[in-house]
């Protein structure tokens, strides 16, 4: 499996000299590969820490053996996260949380709480796994003090064919992409990932996010992706 990941502060946070409230993680675990992207709510005072701790909370959930499944998995992530940020600070640390875990056989578990976008190509077929939002910009579900299982979206898919993969991104990117071209976007990230070594791909991706062209864009931007490798790559 080939991966890429980048997370950059948006123009607002850069101008104000404050840390980004997004966090992203790609980790090779003993039994598989884990990707997480989180977007701490800008209006909350401890959301930067909340987003980082959410990445750690997901990782902790997958380092138990065997990892919990479905609702129990999301509940474990929530419990781990509350323990890390403390119950008293959970509201101030609210964050979205998107993660994917792919085992060595290509079996993927994908979960999403809140804004952002998850794109998937499974068995050669491209799918946008994120339903269209019912509200407007900056109205999102998030990890907070109370666990509500029904708010999480959980999918399972198989990465089997060369070029299959998963891309996850925070809304700093997903809100500004032309949604009529999501499959092309997926293919571009995949092609770039296969054409570069991992450190160079990280630099390319970071540069692309820093050069984001949408007028008025202000959010932090994070993206993580995994692709099933071509046999001849």
């Amino acid at each position: 499996m080939r991966t890429c990941c980048a997370s950059v502060a948006g123009p607002d946070n850069r101008t104000r000299g404050v840390p980004k409230q997004d966090a992203a993680m790609v980790r090779r675990l003993a039994s598989g590969l884990l990707l997480v992207v989180c977007d701490g709510l800008g209006s909350r005072s401890e959301s930067a820490n909340g987003a980082r701790q959410a990445c750690c909370a997901v990782k902790a959930a997958f380092t138990t053996s065997p990892p919990p499944r479905d609702d129990a998995l999301c509940e474990t992530v929530h419990r781990n996260w509350v323990r890390r940020v403390t119950a008293e600070s959970a509201e101030a640390a609210a964050t979205t949380c998107l993660f994917s875990y792919v085992d060595a056989g290509g079996n993927a578990t994908v979960a999403q709480l809140g804004d952002g976008l998850i794109l998937c190509r499974s068995q050669g077929r491209f799918t946008n796994l994120t339903p269209e939002r019912s509200g407007f910009s900056n109205q999102t579900l998030a990890l907070s003090g109370v666990f509500t299982g029904g708010e999480w979206l959980v999918h399972r898919c198989a990465l089997e064919e060369p070029g299959d993969g998963i891309i996850m991104m925070t809304d700093g990117i997903s809100e500004d992409i032309d949604h009529r071209r999501l499959e092309e976007f997926f293919e571009e990230i995949r092609n770039q990932t296969f054409s570069r070594r991992s450190p160079a791909m990280g630099r390319w991706l970071t540069h692309q996010l820093h050069e984001w062209p949408t007028p008025g864009h202000s959010d932090d931007k994070s993206i993580a992706a995994v692709f099933w490798e071509n046999e001849d790559d």
């Binding site: 092309e184 949408t214 864009h217």
Partner: peptide, 9 residues
């Protein structure tokens, strides 16, 4: 990637 980004605020 900027080729996929919307040009309007």
């Amino acid at each position: 990637l900027k080729d996929f980004a919307l040009a309007k605020p």
